[in-house]
């Protein structure tokens, strides 16, 4: 069952020098319980994408066109008040900078309570029920309930990120957006937090979009991988299939640049730099860096198409 369907989403930043095409014609669908990983270099538009799904973009960024269907509802067509009500109750965010995502002058319980109270229409829950719920949530993410009375500066980075996870699942949303949730943590804590996130998501039966640039982390965690380049989705498909046989040259390079256990390969980055989104290269935006570039790549822009069952790729090789 499809929970979230994004259709032809386009987001531009309107600058003095012209529109910067941060997200260009992105479409994908998210099934119930599915974990979708969105990978790409910084500046590939993945974080803009997350903010646009929550409709949190500030000028000069603007959603130009497209639909974000959550069930039958187009989020982009909601009023501001309706969208505010949908945030976290339907579509939640687990933020990138765990170190700084909690209000330093507010106790953890107040910050959790805020989320619950302002979505608690008609006061279905009273104060003690909310408190009990908060304790449950904290325990669900592996924290002691005494954390409720603490301030953010008393917690470690991993604990803060767990609080953010508790916040994200507190209203049992259908979709959780996790924007590089562990990028500020060290590797051991990273793994534990990801496990917690996975359990919490499964428990409430939500779907998850994990944004990041770490292909290794993605491989262990998600079901589906979407690769973004220069604001476009260039490949999307099941994680096993993509790792076994990446179709887009860019995906291939991303996977090849991973350090591997058995091989003593020399680490290779991807040569070249991320293109300007203000004046993207003509044709396929990847062609200046592509090892398999062909003459018509420089003129003709590829579109995302299903080249094999379940395998979508945007490349003129297919």
């Amino acid at each position: 069952m499809t929970v979230l369907r994004v259709e032809n989403l386009r987001v531009h930043y309107h600058t003095k020098d012209g529109p910067v095409r941060a997200v260009e014609n992105v479409s994908f669908a998210l099934q119930r319980g599915e974990r979708l990983g969105l990978v790409g270099e910084s500046g590939s538009g993945k974080s803009t994408m997350v903010l646009s799904l929550l409709r949190m973009l500030k000028p000069p960024a603007r959603i130009e066109s497209g639909r974000v269907l959550l069930g039958d509802i187009d989020l982009l067509a909601l009023t501001d008040a309706q969208m505010r009500a949908a945030r976290f109750s339907q579509i939640a965010l687990i933020p990138q900078g765990a170190m700084n995502s909690l209000n330093p002058v507010m106790r953890i319980k107040t910050q959790l309570m805020d989320t619950i109270r302002y979505h608690n229409r008609n006061n279905r829950l009273d104060q003690s029920e909310i408190m009990a719920h908060i304790h449950e949530l904290l325990e669900a993410v592996g924290l002691d309930r005494s954390v409720a009375n603490m301030y953010p500066h008393e917690l470690s980075g991993g604990m803060k990120q767990r609080v953010c996870i508790a916040m994200g699942i507190s209203l049992q949303p259908q979709v959780i957006l996790a924007d590089e949730p562990t990028s500020a943590l060290d590797v051991v804590v990273q793994r534990q937090v990801m496990e917690t996130l996975g359990q919490a998501q499964e428990e409430i039966g939500a779907s998850l979009i994990l944004v990041g640039h770490d292909m290794g982390l993605m491989a262990q965690f998600v079901n589906t991988i979407g690769v973004m380049y220069a604001g476009k989705l260039v490949e999307i498909g099941p994680v096993d299939a993509i790792f076994e046989e990446p179709l887009h040259p860019y995906t291939r390079l991303l996977i090849a640049s991973l350090p591997s256990l058995e091989g003593k390969r020399i680490f290779r980055g991807i040569p070249g730099i991320t293109p300007s989104l203000l004046t993207p290269p003509p044709g396929c935006a990847f062609h200046p860096r592509c090892p398999q570039v062909m003459e018509h790549c420089k003129a003709e822009a590829p579109v995302l198409q299903e080249v094999r069952p379940g395998r979508w790729v945007s490349c003129l090789l297919y």
Binding site: R84, R87, S89, L93, P95, N100, S101, L102, N103, M167
Partner: peptide
């Protein structure tokens, strides 16, 4: 980030 998250939480 905490202001962004507060907004994302759907607070008034």
């Amino acid at each position: 980030d905490y202001v962004t998250l507060a907004e994302a939480k759907g607070l008034p």
